[in-house]
């Protein structure tokens, strides 16, 4: 046993970055030391399924905007939902008109980290006559520096990304 090397963990360069490592000679001073703050990166790849909503994303990739309509009560959804909130029955896929109007909007000058580089951008809720619920999207082609309440009611037309990302921004709207 004496000839064997002592057991040790493998070394790596994945250590933490320390911004301060104070240590007083007198242990009674430890309570007044600055907190140690370390950077902890955290990145995850999710294997995410769109489940029963998947045809919506297939639709966007093919230049089609899909909503749903309840087979039992005919309530219609501008953002798809495969079971009706009102009666619980299964919904059917329907194609939505490419032209709608702005129900409400905002211009985002800040945002979550993922979208910060895209600011300023315009968010809208789109409405269609005869469709009971709305659809959240982006509006391009307006002046972000001059928002106006008059944008509510503006006629807008859907456009589709050529290179699909398979997220809801594969469709966006422009003034019709």
């Amino acid at each position: 046993m004496a000839d064997e090397k002592p057991a040790k963990l493998p070394e790596s360069v994945e250590g933490k970055v320390l911004f301060n490592v104070p240590f007083p000679a007198d242990l009674r001073q430890l309570k007044s030391m600055s907190p140690i703050v370390v950077m902890q990166p955290y990145r995850i790849d999710y294997i995410h399924s769109y489940g029963q909503d998947s045809p919506f994303f297939a639709g966007l990739a093919n230049g089609r905007l899909l909503g749903t309509r309840c087979g039992a009560c005919a309530y219609s959804y501008g953002t798809p939902r495969l079971h009706c909130m009102r009666c619980g029955a299964e919904c059917e896929w329907i194609e939505l008109p490419l032209e709608g109007s702005v129900h409400t909007f905002t211009v985002c000058h800040f945002g979550g980290e993922q979208f910060l580089k895209e600011t300023p951008f315009v968010l809208i809720l789109v409405e269609w006559p005869g469709v009971a619920t709305l659809f959240l999207s982006r509006l391009a082609g307006v002046d972000c520096a001059r928002p106006s309440l008059d944008w509510v009611g503006m006629k807008v037309r859907a456009r589709f990304r050529r290179l699909s990302r398979f997220d809801p921004t594969d469709v966006y709207f422009v003034p019709a």
Partner: peptide, 24 residues
């Protein structure tokens, strides 16, 4: 996280849309 967040998820933006409709 399927339909709202990826469009530009930002809570102040959501509330701003709500109050624009309140103003209108």
């Amino acid at each position: 996280a399927n339909f709202d967040y990826p469009v530009g998820g930002f809570y102040t933006g959501y509330y701003a849309m709500m109050v624009v409709r309140h103003m209108r």
